[in-house]
Design a protein around this nucleic acid. Structure first.
Lengths: 203, 203
DNA sequence: AGTTTCCTTGACCCCGAGGTCAAAATTCAA
DNA sequence: TTGAATTTTGACCTCGGGGTCAAGGAAACT
C-alpha cells in the first residue's frame, strides 16, 4: 500500500504520463480490453520502459482506483449536517454533476469496475463507502424527522443522485446521440436536476 | 440481418444455450473480457462445436444486441399519448424498473456497450432510439403545454428514468454493498421512484 | 440397412498481449 | 571527465484466445 513516492524528475513525469494514459485507455476499454501497448503508446513510452515504472498492468490499475476513491467520495463528505437541508443536497448534486463533467474518464473507470462485479474494489465499497453513506443517510433521516425535508428514503435518494449525475458521464455517447448536436448536456442536466430534487425535497 | 431461423430441434436447443451462456459471460466481463471457452463451457459445448452454430464471437454478440434493443425500447413505446400523463410516466418507470429486476444481464450488456462508446450499436442509437425518444418527448412536451404536467425538460426526464432504474441492475453490487443484507433493493426502489416522479410531475 | 445429412470433437495454427532480460544510452555526482 | 546510477530499448519467451480442419459419430430419411 505505502508506495515510495517517485523521487527523480523523470520518474515523476513518466509515472504521471503513464497514469494519465492508463486512465484514458482503461476507462474506454475496461481492464481486460486495455493493452499495455496502447497505454505505452499514448504515454509516449515503449512497453518495457512502461514496465520499468510499474511492475504490472494490475499495479497501474490498482493505483488509478486508489486515487479515484478519494476524489469520488469527497463531494458526499462535504455534505454538512449543520447547513440548510435542501441547499446541502442540491449542492451535493451540483458537485457530483461537476465531477461527471470534469472527470468523465474517472466515472467510466469506476462504472466499468462496478459493472463487472467490483472484483478489485469490493473491499473499498464495504470498508470506506458504506460507513460514509450510513453516516450521511443518518443526517438526511434526521432532517426528515425534524420536518425540514419531505419524507424520503435517504439511501435511495443518494442512489438516485449517483445514478442521474454519473449517467451523463457514463452514457455520454447515448445522451448525445439522443439530444443531437447543439446541446450542452451538462448545463441542461444541472437545471433539470435542480428542479427534480427541489420538488422532491420541499418540506 | 435476415437470419435463416434454426430449423432442427438440436439447432434450436444449442443456439439458445449458446445465447444464454453468452449473455451471462458478455454482461459480466464485457466483449473483450469474455472468451469463447467460457461461453462454450457454460453452454455445455466444445469450442469448435460452438463455432459450428455461430461463425464468430462478434456474431454471437451482434445477435444478443439485436435481440436486446427491442425488449429494451418496448416500455417506452408503450407510453400512451392518450392516457393520464402522470400515470403513463409512472407506468413507464415501473416497467423499466421491472426490466432491471428481471433482466439485469441485458441491462449490463447494454451498459457495457454504451460505456465503451457504443462501437457496435451506434447506428441503432441514431436510427432507432433517437426517433422513438423524439416522439415520446413530444408527447410529454404537449402534456406540459396543456398544463397536465409540471414544467419539465422531457429529454432529461427520460434520461433520469433510464439512469435511476438501470442503476439497480448495473450497479447492483454497489447498491447491495451499501444497503447491507436484509433489503429488497427493487421493492424499495419502486416506492422511492414513484414518490420522486409523483412529486416532480404533479401539475 | 444403407446412405445422406447433420452434429461433434481433437489437434492444430496464429497472433496478440503480458512480461523478462541483457545490453545500450543517458543522466547525474564528484 | 569519468564512473556509477538511472533510464531506455530490441529481442525474446510464453500463453491464452479466436478460429480452422479433417475425420469420427449420431440422426434422419427411404
Amino acid at each position: 500500500m505505502t508506495r515510495a513516492k517517485p523521487k527523480t524528475r523523470i520518474q515523476q513525469k513518466n509515472s504521471e504520463a503513464i497514469l494519465k494514459a492508463a486512465l484514458e485507455v482503461f476507462s474506454q476499454a475496461g481492464f481486460r480490453g486495455a493493452t499495455l501497448d496502447q497505454i505505452a503508446d499514448r504515454a509516449g513510452l515503449s512497453k518495457p520502459n512502461l514496465l520499468y515504472y510499474f511492475p504490472s498492468k494490475e499495479a497501474i490499475h490498482a493505483e488509478l482506483i486508489a486515487g479515484l476513491l478519494k476524489v469520488w467520495l469527497d463531494p458526499l463528505r462535504a455534505l454538512d449536517a449543520g447547513g440548510d437541508p435542501v441547499a446541502e443536497i442540491l449542492g451535493y448534486v451540483r458537485r457530483k454533476l461537476e465531477l461527471s463533467r470534469d472527470f468523465p474518464r474517472e466515472s467510466r473507470l469506476f462504472a466499468n469496475e462496478v459493472l463487472q462485479g467490483a472484483p478489485r474494489i469490493d473491499a473499498a465499497l464495504q470498508g470506506e463507502l458504506k460507513p460514509l453513506v450510513d453516516d450521511k443517510a443518518a443526517v438526511i433521516a434526521a432532517w426528515v424527522a425534524e420536518g425540514r425535508l419531505a419524507p424520503v428514503d435517504p439511501y435511495h435518494l443518494i442512489f438516485s443522485i449517483w445514478a442521474t449525475t454519473q449517467h451523463y458521464a457514463d452514457f455520454d455517447v447515448q445522451v448525445r446521440a439522443v439530444l443531437g448536436p447543439g446541446h450542452d448536456p451538462f448545463a441542461e442536466a444541472g437545471a433539470f436536476l435542480e428542479t427534480l430534487y427541489r420538488r422532491m425535497l420541499a418540506a
